[in-house]
Design a protein around this nucleic acid. Structure first.
Lengths: 247, 247
DNA sequence: CGAGAGCCTTGACTCAGATCAAAACGCGGG
DNA sequence: CCCGCGTTTTGATCTGAGTCAAGGCTCTCG
């Protein structure tokens, strides 16, 4: 587990999230200003980046790796409330203590800005605020879809939904939606999946096995999933099996 | 059910949501511009304002009344994903079809803007975009808290949480947090509460009765709730019984 | 190679909440 | 005053997911 953290990119121009992060809409002069206040931080898998309630003096974007946003009750029950992928934004301008725990699932590199200068810049640079609004609205949509999953779906549908969500995102990244079976790597442990879906890890395990037995998915090892028929999966997820599949 | 819709305010200056809605940060000159493109619409309790998937050519704010945002699966299972109170914003700039059903729970008055002019105005008036960002971030926080409720709380805790949320909002409106028992009116039917909490209406009814029997709440009629001890209620909700109670 | 630590799977049993069914409560209208 | 309808309560029973408890699989490290 003690690998060297991934090297940070130096230049925005070659940043892998240049066109998806808060800075996506910035012109080169704006980018230069951002460049002056940015700094990179790396974290190792398993590390808690931020503790709920702690003061937060920075905001930033995930450059590489995966992190989770979780909420915990006093008695230890936890619910994941956000999955942070490359380009996702962490922290809230205008608030100075963290509302959730942020935990690195894999090794992770973040592009950070001290909060104060970032807020000042946001006031003067509409492109940043506009992009942040857009991203926040997307997250809100995702949160609402997730609420339907948590509130009304069965355990089997929940698992199918999660796999579909991850597959959809992967497909969006690896440009073309090539035909044929999709293959994805689950970036989460069974326990993390349980925290995501409001289940126990035993139930997750059972339902994954059941989907496998029924041929909805195939497993290679514990984490690599093959989806022979994506529409079948959507069907199991209880989703409209056509919606949202256009280029 | 056929009451005359509430009369619409004419002037922004005396609008009840002037200081909480999207327009909250606007200066008087900006307000004048908004004034030119705004129009009021009234809806009756029970009416569906917007159907999921329909084209949306306007956005707007709830002025008076209550509406819900709900998502429905093909087989009829429904989950409420948003509760729209006065000052809340409906619609998403940049998207042209509705993602959710919007249903009026009470008679309702909305202050609407045609989408196109509003978007243009947003691009030129940072105060609007700023305020919208702020409101969207608040909604995202609320959605995430709600996810914890849906994913991890018991039926009893869910009911207590809902009552606490409504009480908290009511207290915020009726200026001072005066001591003594809180009295609130549930703006929702048992069925709507069930859709909110991911339960059945029978379970809602049973748990409300149980909380009453245990003296956590008292009922006057079906809808009016008295809360003798707010901390006790928070305790039943599984929330930190101190958090978030400051002025 | 064997021990240990993390994950993951599987089985047996329990229980919270869903489902099915019936009755009670209000309330507006004739 | 009674009727009818929408809402709510209450009861009996069922069941999906939680809980508790073993084991199994794969690494890494000694």
């Amino acid at each position: 587990m003690l690998k060297e953290p991934t090297a940070a990119p130096r230049d925005c121009a070659e940043c892998p999230i240049r066109h998806r992060a808060v800075c996506a809409r910035c012109e080169s002069d704006e980018l230069e200003l951002l460049d002056q206040i940015k700094y990179y931080r790396s974290f190792e898998a398993g590390q808690t980046l931020i503790w709920s309630g702690d003061p937060m003096d920075f905001v930033g974007s995930v450059v590489t790796g995966i992190a989770t946003l979780t909420q915990t009750m006093e008695d230890g029950r936890t619910q994941m409330v956000g999955l942070l992928l490359p380009s996702d934004f962490v922290g809230r301008p205008g608030r100075d203590s963290a509302a959730y725990d942020v935990v690195a699932t894999t090794n992770i590199v973040m592009c950070c800005f001290r909060k104060k200068p970032f807020e000042e810049m946001m006031a003067r640079t509409p492109h940043i605020a506009q992009r942040l609004l857009e991203m926040t609205l997307d997250e809100l949509d995702a949160a609402r879809e997730w609420m339907l999953v948590l509130g009304r779906k069965t355990a089997r549908e929940k698992i199918a939904s999660l796999i579909a969500i991850i597959a959809r995102r992967d497909a969006a990244l690896s440009i073309a939606g090539k035909r044929g079976p999709l293959v994805i790597d689950l970036p989460l442990t069974r326990e993390a999946m349980a925290d995501y879906l409001g289940l126990t890890l035993e139930t997750v395990s059972r339902q994954v096995s059941a989907l496998k037995k029924d041929g909805v998915i195939a497993l290679e090892g514990k984490r690599r999933v093959t989806i022979p028929d994506f529409n079948r999966l959507l069907d199991e997820a209880g989703d409209d099996s056509d919606g949202g599949m256009l280029a």
